Computed example of a mutant assay.
Amino acid sequence: MTDHQLAHATFHVMGDAVIPQFWTDYFGVSPSSAITKGESFTTPSGRVSRTPGRVGLWAVASKPFVRSNELEPHLRFLIERLNLTRPDLRETLEREGVKVRFWCYWDNESGDRVPDVPDDIRTMMEAIGGTVEIDEYR
């Protein structure tokens, strides 16, 4: 495997009502990224944003923890780390007025790679009202 991973995933909680500290406490995990709507935030480069956040975001990325060019290990890591199968998750998301998704990076420069998102993961995300989005790069 090269230093550049060909796949990774991030779990996003998004919406105007996102309060990052609530989700940090709920999941018991510090986010990779957090934005409160209307407030300045730290950009991926480590700088403070020039404009306030347009939407709230709480996110945890798999990339620092999982070394794989396939999506499945990244997704399973996030499911386990955040305990996304907990029975109250959908209700909590609806009550807080937020949406969730897996955002997946998929490098397909060769043109012959097919993303591997198992059916059970798609079903789990549908059950909590979330989506799986694949951002493919060629």
Rank of each mutant, 00 (worst) to 15 (best):
F77T: 00
F102S: 08
V29E: 11
D3H: 07
R81G: 00
L93T: 07
M125K: 04
R50Q: 09
T2H: 13
S62F: 03
L78E: 05
I79C: 06
P31D: 05
I35L: 12
R76V: 14
V29F: 10
A9C: 13
R54C: 10
A9P: 05
V60L: 12
H12Q: 12
P73H: 10
C104D: 01
T42A: 11
D88F: 03
S33N: 06
P118H: 09
D16A: 15
F41Y: 15
D112P: 04
I121W: 06
D107V: 04
M124P: 10
D120A: 13
L84S: 00
E133W: 04
G28M: 11
L84I: 06
V18P: 05
G129C: 10
A7R: 00
W103R: 14
I134D: 07
I79W: 02
T92R: 06
R50G: 15
E70T: 15
Y26I: 10
I79E: 07
F27Y: 04
W103V: 02
G53A: 12
I19E: 10
A17M: 08
I79H: 05
R95S: 12
A61K: 09
G129A: 11
H12A: 03
S40C: 01
S40W: 05
R47P: 01
G111V: 10
R101W: 01
N83Y: 02
S110D: 04
E136N: 00
S110H: 03
V60I: 13
K37D: 02
T42Y: 01
S110L: 05
L93Q: 07
A7N: 05
V66E: 02
I79P: 05
G97Y: 13
P118S: 15
W23S: 03
V48C: 10
R101L: 12
R90K: 15
R86E: 11
A61W: 05
T24R: 11
E72C: 07
R113S: 00
S32G: 14
H74P: 04
S110E: 14
I35A: 06
T85S: 13
L57T: 03
L82M: 01
D135A: 11
V29Y: 09
E91N: 14
D88M: 01
T24D: 08
N69M: 01
G53H: 00
P73S: 03
W103M: 13
L82P: 04
G130L: 07
V29S: 03
D88C: 00
L82N: 03
L82G: 02
G130W: 05
K63W: 07
Y137I: 07
G97K: 14
A9D: 08
E39S: 14
A127M: 12
Y105N: 11
A7F: 07
D107L: 08
K63R: 13
P87D: 07
T43A: 08
G97M: 14
V100D: 11
L82T: 00
T51C: 04
R122M: 13
M14G: 04
T2R: 14
N83H: 08
L6N: 11
D107P: 00
W106L: 01
F41N: 04
W106F: 15
H74S: 03
D116C: 06
V48Q: 11
F65I: 00
T24W: 02
T2Q: 12
H4D: 09
L6F: 06
Y137P: 00
K37N: 11
D3P: 01
L89M: 03
R90A: 12
H8Q: 04
L57D: 04
A17S: 15
R95D: 12
G53I: 02
V100A: 06
S30T: 15
T24L: 01
